[in-house]
Write a protein that binds this DNA or RNA. Sequence first.
DNA 1: AATGAATGAGCCTTCATTCAT
DNA 2: AATGAATGAAGGCTCATTCAT
Lengths: 194, 194, 194, 194
Amino acid sequence: MTPKLVDTDQRKREIIEATIFVLSEKGIKDIRITDIAKKLDLGKSTIYEYFKNKDDLLKQSFEFFLQELYIPEANEKYSFLEELNYILDRYLKHTDQELKQFNVIIDIFFASIKGDFKEFDFVFNDYINYMVEKIKKDQQAGLIRKEVNPQAAVSWIGATLDGLGIQLIMRDEFNGEEIFSSFLEAVEVYLKNK
Amino acid sequence: MTPKLVDTDQRKREIIEATIFVLSEKGIKDIRITDIAKKLDLGKSTIYEYFKNKDDLLKQSFEFFLQELYIPEANEKYSFLEELNYILDRYLKHTDQELKQFNVIIDIFFASIKGDFKEFDFVFNDYINYMVEKIKKDQQAGLIRKEVNPQAAVSWIGATLDGLGIQLIMRDEFNGEEIFSSFLEAVEVYLKNK
Amino acid sequence: MTPKLVDTDQRKREIIEATIFVLSEKGIKDIRITDIAKKLDLGKSTIYEYFKNKDDLLKQSFEFFLQELYIPEANEKYSFLEELNYILDRYLKHTDQELKQFNVIIDIFFASIKGDFKEFDFVFNDYINYMVEKIKKDQQAGLIRKEVNPQAAVSWIGATLDGLGIQLIMRDEFNGEEIFSSFLEAVEVYLKNK
Amino acid sequence: MTPKLVDTDQRKREIIEATIFVLSEKGIKDIRITDIAKKLDLGKSTIYEYFKNKDDLLKQSFEFFLQELYIPEANEKYSFLEELNYILDRYLKHTDQELKQFNVIIDIFFASIKGDFKEFDFVFNDYINYMVEKIKKDQQAGLIRKEVNPQAAVSWIGATLDGLGIQLIMRDEFNGEEIFSSFLEAVEVYLKNK
DNA sequence: AATGAATGAGCCTTCATTCAT
DNA sequence: AATGAATGAAGGCTCATTCAT
């Protein structure tokens, strides 16, 4: 029994990573199996050894991408407002590379909306739940007033983040600085308002 | 010279309306000229008598759709907050029919982001400018504090509206009532905060 | 019985003339019924009142065009060499308008070769016969030596004219002057050589 | 890595040859990708694996065809008149197969004139240059008189060859023998005339 | 495990032609 | 006599997917 020359899992991951790369360049509408194969210098049919079909490949790529993306790990110690601040800061200082990644998120987002990949709702839900818990903790710590409905607040604040992310991509002259500080001020006033 | 048997403007409009209908059912990714023709019981080629190509048809359909959609004139008398209230109210009481329309907006929105129909930026820009003016007027009327940067405020508030609209479609159990009132409160506090 | 408002023959001729015009602009491969109708400000279907189909229209247009073209009338008094001279002179001093006409001839020529309009052989045959007769007359008048086979000579001289006509159209820097005088000299030497 | 089961170069060549065959049967106006595929018992889309599009296929087929056709090397030792003789001889003794090939030349020729494949001018130019050089050499060897302008002579002699080739195809009762000898005599007299 | 080659299904688009009025 | 409107038929091309090796 000879050892595997190429780890199948490894190869699978390579394909997924190539998929995400191509996705970030071309977008979901224009991605072609051929592009991915070419990127890896593999035959098209090889991809079908690892994935049932294009949809399967995309789905698994999305999953992988999202897992990599949302790692709220070390942020446990931050308050809700601090984290919001941190997120917007990342929006602001994004690299071109990150901007491209953002495009992938948008693709997943809209595919999810359109029902093509309904199963990705959970990601957004997970994130919302995480933020809701944060607000509750802050309320107990007295950082946020008790009258605020955490679910409701996170819903619209999350919506704003989504909308701002879209603007970030769309507008060439997106004046993040001003907009974010206006938004942050509003959230702060609202959450602490006595 | 025989009188026109079919009003071509009328027919053109029929095609556009059919296009929007099919769009709301299938989405921009899956719309086929065949579908539209079938819906109208027309031959495929007939459509090409009225539109240069698929892109042209979609573009004109989008234009028509958006014109029908955004008719803010009558609202001139409302203040910014009142109008925001009004918009969210329409979100809340939407019919199934309107929900489907929302799907079309998402498509236009997405296509616009993705650069496929860059020309529709203007619609969103128009709307933003309209809101900015409203805030300025309210600031002069003393309804909104002078410290607020109208541009910045409208940017993030608009983003929220976009994000909420998306949630509206995505989530089956979207608790609009609570979310909107939380959002409105935050905006109000922010704009009037002394 | 009211008099005809538009003479049908007149209208038919108009259509034919428009066809030739469009032909000279776009060539046989790219001519469209629509173009002809548009040129005349007529409905497409009107053309079908006068001609069975596109082929019929083209055929009749060709016929008309050729009849107009080859009018060897007054040239009766010229000798063969004089006429050759005259033809080449027209080649040389062609207007842009005539060059376009030449394109039509090429089209007819090749369509005829390709068997699409086999019936136009006769035109070229007519012309050849006309030239053959001229040579014979010149032979009797002692202008051309008796040893020359009129049929054979006209065949290759005609071939040269065809080939030169093609070069005239093809080559932007076609140096007619030199080429024609070389050709004429050769023909003269050959026909008169004792 | 499995060995190639089908030699792609071979297959590409097969497609080109099939294209030329269909071209010789149907002509450029009526050739369909379907025809070529059917001839080879291949799927239409297979052809698109080897050629970018129909134009590309035609262009490459033309190139291949012309390369096969014009191989004048070995004739270096012949004088201009000998070569002319040789060419006309080939005209005369053409097989049916060659006659069909001639049809392909006509197509290329016509397409080239019409500007559809402008790039094939070079073939004809190459041939003309080759002949011009031949005449110059003969002039130095004293076989052709110095007064002859090589460029001009080749132009009209080439034109004659073109025209005669066309007649060859068109006329069922083309009396080559007589015509060619008349033409050759004329050329000889002209080139050597003192 | 890898893939080269092939393809079917399907889409957009063009254009000559028809037919009721 | 004229034509507006509609369309069938056909062609080019794309792309995910298969299958033998």
